[in-house]
């Protein structure tokens, strides 16, 4: 058998990490299978559901459409990197308070995507939030409580920033 594994050095959730992967492997697979970061979910593998949403150098991307070798030298943020110490991120807290999850499998993707939204636009309107999150499918909630949770988190983060 030929040796085909690539050695990748990257930063994941603020920590330097190395891993081996196949050249055609997706970053989603590397995160889930190689690195044990299973909080990022696979719903479609075609970029259509958002369950695999991560931040790559701060930019929102579906990890299923990124090749693992592309992570070389870059910074990856996954759902596992959102809470700090023993405190949840305000988005995580608001999802809980608003009952914005039912089965919860879409939740990591929504929270990561919503973080990217609030990073870019701390005070989004309902419409802007709906369009930003249109790449994330939720089959359980009808989105109502998700949108409320994100808007509530935005206003709380704004208050605490003052």
């Amino acid at each position: 058998m030929t040796v085909t594994k690539l050695h990748i050095e990257t930063t994941i959730n603020g920590e330097p990490r190395e891993f081996l992967c196949d050249s055609h492997e997706t970053l989603l697979s590397a995160l889930r299978n190689g690195l044990g970061l299973t909080g990022t979910k696979e719903g479609c593998a075609t970029g259509d559901c958002g369950a695999c949403s991560i931040l790559l150098d701060g930019r929102l991307v579906p990890a299923c459409l990124v090749l693992a070798p592309e992570a070389q030298g870059r910074a990856v943020t996954t759902i596992e990197g959102l809470s700090s110490g023993d405190a949840l991120h305000p988005l995580q807290q608001k999802f809980l308070e608003h009952a914005a999850l039912q089965c919860g499998v879409c939740t990591p993707g929504f929270i990561v995507a919503a973080k990217a939204l609030l990073d870019a636009k701390p005070n989004p309107s309902e419409d802007e939030t709906r369009y930003w999150l249109a790449g994330n499918l939720c089959r359980c909630t009808g989105y109502d409580k998700i949108i409320r949770a994100v808007l509530d988190a935005a206003s709380e983060m704004k208050e605490s920033a003052i």
Binding site: R32, G36, T40, I79, L88, Q92, E97
Partner: peptide, 23 residues
């Protein structure tokens, strides 16, 4: 009443294990 669900923190942090999440 509307208490926070007990399995919620695991789900918003990505720790909850679904069908494909175990090795």
């Amino acid at each position: 009443t509307r208490p926070i669900r007990h399995d919620g923190v695991d789900k918003v942090t990505g720790r909850a294990s679904y069908g494909a999440d175990v090795v």
